[in-house]
Design a protein around this nucleic acid. Structure first.
Length: 968
RNA sequence: GCGGGAAUGUCAGAGCGGUCAAAUGAGCUGGCCUAAGAAGCCAGUAGCUUAGUGCUUACGCAGGUUCGAAUCCUGCUCCCCGCACCA
């Protein structure tokens, strides 16, 4: 059987290829549909189950859509430039080109063995000069437009890879490829100005049908935020500072400039230079893990900044926690209301100035008191039960002082008689109060009682600003003591005085609170200490203060993005040469378009530094402008440039005169269904979107989003880790396909889990898919061609309807279940009208065997190119389904009774079924199938049949949908 | 820390207000078939109970909404995945 399957696989793969079954071209009469899987990196010359899953998901969709009558573009290509080829070259002494090309060859072979319906004539590889030439072309176009520029920037540098990494490639201070530490290093680099498209990239997310998760990741990555740019004067020069918290301007007590800031030394005074230098030396990049514990550190620069509103003079520090290229690279530090600033201030003893206090509404006083009240109530009940007299007087509340909290509010007394004290104490311990304090209290006067007071210490509370919480028996509650803060504030605002309290409450609060603060208060609240803005809600204050600053021309509203420009330079060999020549006279000169391509030379040395610089012929060229001596750029472009437009090249992959024919591109693009891993959420998918938008602005294409729909397939795990060669937990394609045929692998991968779910690979289930395929084949080989029952037709049409919807929405696993069920309902005799549509439904999942069975039904054309079946809704009759269920229930009942009788030692031979008259036919029609499932002899009577055999008078038990039984 | 997703029977994995002791596989148990089966077929697979019934527990934990909840809401726990000193 296996051999047979393998032969079938080969036979049809060859047939498809020979007949060019999937070759397509533009056809204005047909509706196009473009299905694409992210093109693979041919670093490994094998495919594992993760790959197979990915490609199968795409192929099923492509085949499905093709059968639905769409003109399907479904190509395959290779992302063959990049580091692994170069690493392999270094390691094994193979030239990257050779390495890449042999890998491609092998991978292609395996891919072809998958039986996917690719149009192989459209193949492309990014290392092909006919491809990368156009990278250079686009580079120059973007250069003309000012979207390509060069700057000296601190970059992420990986020592091991000897290359610069993009922001996206440096994962928390580690290289995404080799996991070694990334260091900061200043270098001249080429950039694409993706930031110019930040807003469009953000807004157009609404246009595309992508998983929300990916859209969100892109949104966060773009990171648009609104804020205020405030001008601080430092050494008589204006420094714009970006902040989202203009409301805290009165709380600024220092400034921090990024240690990597290019203008840092403008601020460093002579006296401080030594300190700053030694501080900078200490800096290093840190890993993700270390980041959490990394202490905020800094050093005084010697300069002071003038707060534009308060005119206060505050020191400027250089700090390790400020990002150089976000915002202005310098922050106004408000330690009372920003956790980082707070930590820094604590460390260097900088004053903390509180300018926001929490609002009354935030305090859940009532809740607190209710809980306390319940506690008291509980105590009361307990005491009464034990006949201990307790006094409570007045309303209950809470009072807090020092670090303890007592149920002992303003005018409440709680006491027991002296003789009950010990007993009461015991009971309270039983209630869970571990500590009971007993004391004479002078602070509170208990005039009503002579008895000893019982204080209950029920918990502790922390007294710090804003976050007052009480911890009572392990539960944390907000505590109303902030109430008095609010009170204090009221007093200040109304300029009231209260006996025993100071005039300047702001000062008092500061004194009281800043010393005991444990962390910054970053919540919202009411402004204090902020002159005319006192009493304003801080969210409103952001607006108001910004407006105020605008009036004074000391600030303005601005928008910030986290998105950085796309750094494309790589100090590598195996990539597209950047078409730039440096000339001592003319400076940076782009290679003229007519001189393209700048071909990547094969002869280079890989031992040290940048390989391209070792080829003198390549490097030393004439300046295109002045014809004087020039020097070529030796950096190459990162691979994400290649992958930013390859999907358009597929539309016209052999064009030598243009990157692609505009008409062809406009016919096929955008990609209707893109399929690939979620790991590309922010890199490839963002760059490609940018690139397409830029091309649109250049007038090269007429669409502005590359991928209308995106589907993320789930990762295949094995032994708890993602399947990958480096982890050694790989199951190769051939391990399954050589044993069971490729259709089994496809079917299994698709039935085990929804395509977008992560799945754990287990061999166990493979057999089941294999068995099913064999069953289908055996069935089709033996089926008697004839008529199909209405029942089967009903089922077929229902299945067609549902499976169509399921495939459309990628519920492949559900579709397979339904297809299997349909198959189970087939009889020994079926008509072509059911046998053929079944093959069609099954075809996307198992193209080879269905194609084979299709031809066995004497069909000449490829099943792959047939029409997808349409459901005839008129033929769907739920009656059949219900009847099926009745028979199911009946046989279950019979089996149940049989089992019970057998346990009692009897062996039933025959079952008599008594149905209500209306249902008699249903059951008598199904006698054969009942017999089959019970192995008993079966006889059906209507209950009103006078001739029925019913010695035990069981017939009375008969109910609609539930016939009575008698077995003997 | 921020953001997103999940938690279902022995396992994997559907379901997402009633038709749910819960699809479909796998595993396990028993039976049939057979010289024998690793093949095929049939049945069972929460517990108790019963000639086909009935009941009780069950969809992470605790509450809530509802005539009714695996499905909706609230809180908690745990796991996974992104981002992360973004001012």
């Amino acid at each position: 059987m296996v051999n047979k399957l393998l032969k079938i696989d080969k036979k049809w793969q060859k047939a498809w290829e020979d007949k060019k079954a999937f070759k397509v071209k533009e056809d204005p009469k047909k509706k196009k549909y473009y299905v694409l899987e992210m093109y693979p990196y041919p670093s490994a010359s094998f495919l594992h189950m993760g790959h197979v899953r990915n490609y199968t998901i795409g192929d099923i969709y492509a085949r499905f859509k093709r059968m639905q009558g769409f003109n399907i573009l479904y190509p395959m290509g290779y992302d063959s430039f990049g580091l692994p080829a170069e690493t392999a070259a270094k390691k094994e002494g193979i030239h990257p080109k050779k390495y890449a090309e042999s890998s491609i060859k092998k991978i292609m072979e395996y891919q072809k063995a998958l039986g996917n319906s690719y149009d192989w004539s459209r193949i492309l590889s990014s290392h092909d000069v006919n491809y990368y030439k156009w990278n250079q072309y686009f580079f120059l176009k973007l250069f003309e437009k000012g979207l390509t520029y060069r700057k000296n920037a601190p970059v992420n540098w990986c020592e091991k890879c000897q290359s610069v990494l993009a922001n996206e490639e440096s994962e928390g201070g580690k290289c995404w490829r080799c996991d070694s530490e990334v260091v900061q290093k200043p270098l001249e680099q080429w950039f694409f100005k993706i930031t110019a498209y930040a807003d469009r990239l953000l807004n157009d997310l609404n246009k595309i049908d992508w998983p929300e998760k990916i859209k969100l990741m892109q949104k966060n990555w773009i990171g648009k935020s609104h804020g205020t740019e405030i001008l601080f004067k430092i050494n008589n020069e204006n420094w714009p500072i970006f902040t989202t918290r203009a409301d805290t301007i009165y709380g600024v007590t220092f400034m921090v400039i990024s240690a990597q800031h290019p203008k840092l030394f403008d601020l460093v005074t002579k006296e401080q230079k030594k300190d700053v230098d030694s501080f900078l030396k200490k800096l290093k990049t840190v890993s993700k893990e270390e980041l959490e514990e990394l202490e905020k550190e800094g050093v005084f620069t010697g300069s002071y900044a003038i707060n534009p509103i308060t005119k206060e003079k505050v020191p400027v520090y250089a700090g390790n926690f400020v990002i150089a290229d976000y915002g202005s690279g310098m922050v106004m530090a408000v330690p009372a209301h920003d956790q980082r600033d707070f930590e820094f201030a604590k460390k260097y003893n900088i004053p903390i100035k509180i300018v926001i206090i929490p609002e009354k509404e935030l305090i859940k006083e009532d809740d607190m008191i209710n809980r306390m009240f319940l506690e008291i109530k509980k105590i009361n009940e307990l005491m009464q039960k034990n006949k201990i007299k307790v006094w409570f007087n007045g309303t209950f509340g809470v009072i807090g002082h020092s670090k303890k909290i007592f149920i002992k509010p303003r005018d409440v007394d709680f006491g027991v008689l002296e003789k009950d004290y010990e007993k009461a104490k015991k009971l309270l311990v039983g209630l869970g109060y571990s500590k009971i304090e007993e004391k004479e209290n002078e602070k509170f006067k208990y005039t009503s009682y002579k008895y000893e007071d019982l204080f209950l210490e029920v918990g502790t509370f922390d007294h710090d600003l804003g976050n007052e919480v009480a911890n009572i028996k392990g539960i944390t509650y907000p505590i109303p003591n902030a109430r008095w803060l609010a009170e204090c504030y009221e007093i200040t605002k109304n300029k009231e005085r209260r006996q025993g309290r100071g005039d300047d409450f702001s000062a008092l609060l500061l004194g009281l609170l800043s010393g005991s603060m444990k962390e910054a208060f970053t919540g919202n609240g009411t402004l204090i200490n902020s002159k005319e803005f006192n009493g304003t809600n801080n969210l409103d204050a952001i607006e108001e203060i910004t407006k105020h600053l605008e009036k004074l021309k000391l600030g303005k509203k601005v928008t910030q993005y986290k998105l950085r420009d796309w750094m494309i330079s790589r100090q590598r060999y195996w990539g597209t040469p950047i078409p730039i020549i440096y000339c001592d006279k003319c400076g940076v000169v782009p290679v003229p378009e007519k001189d393209l391509p700048v071909t990547l030379p094969e002869k280079v040395k890989f031992d040290t530094g940048n390989p391209l610089s070792t080829n003198k012929e390549f490097v030393n060229v004439k300046c295109p402008k002045c014809k004087g001596p020039g020097r070529r750029e030796t950096d190459t472009m990162g691979g994400f440039v290649d992958s930013s437009w390859y999907f358009i090249r597929f539309c016209d992959n052999t064009n030598k005169k243009q990157p692609f024919d505009k008409k062809k591109a406009n016919y096929w693009m955008p990609v209707d269904q893109y399929i690939g891993g979620a790991e590309h959420a922010v890199m490839h998918l963002m760059y490609a979107r940018f690139f397409v938008k830029a091309l649109k602005d250049l007038g090269i294409v007429s669409f502005d989003e590359p991928f209308s729909k995106l589907f993320n397939q789930g990762i295949v795990y094995k032994d708890g880790a993602k399947m990958s060669k480096s982890k050694g937990n790989v199951v190769y394609q051939t391990e399954i396909s050589e044993k069971y045929g490729i259709d089994t692998a496809r079917l299994f991968l698709m039935s085990i889990a929804a395509p977008d779910a992560v799945m754990e690979w287990r061999d166990e289930g493979v057999e089941s898919s294999f068995k099913f395929i064999n069953k289908v084949i055996t069935y089709y080989e033996n089926v008697k061609l004839g008529k199909s029952s209405e029942k089967v037709e009903s089922k077929l049409n229902k299945t067609i309807k549902e499976v169509t919807e399921d495939i459309e929405s990628f519920n492949y696993n559900i579709a397979i279940i339904k297809i299997r069920k349909l198959f189970e309902s087939f009889n020994k005799e079926e008509s072509k009208n059911t046998l053929e549509p079944f093959l069609k439904l099954f075809h996307p999942f198992c193209p080879h065997i269905t194609e084979e069975l299709w031809s066995k039904l004497k069909n000449k054309e490829f099943l792959s190119l047939e029409d997808w079946p349409k459901a005839d809704l008129k033929k769907i009759n739920e009656k059949f389904e219900q009847e099926d269920k009745l028979i199911d229930n009946l046989t279950e009942d019979i089996n149940n009774v049989v089992r019970i009788i057998k346990e009692k030692g009897n062996e039933p031979k025959k079952v008599f079924i008594y149905t209500i008259p209306k249902e008699k036919e249903i059951y008598s029609n199904e006698i054969e199938s009942i017999k089959l499932r019970t192995t008993l002899d079966v006889e059906v009577f209507a209950v009103n049949d006078p001739k029925k055999h019913d010695p035990q008078n069981k017939a009375i038990k008969s109910k609609p949908g539930k016939p009575a039984l008698y077995l003997e």
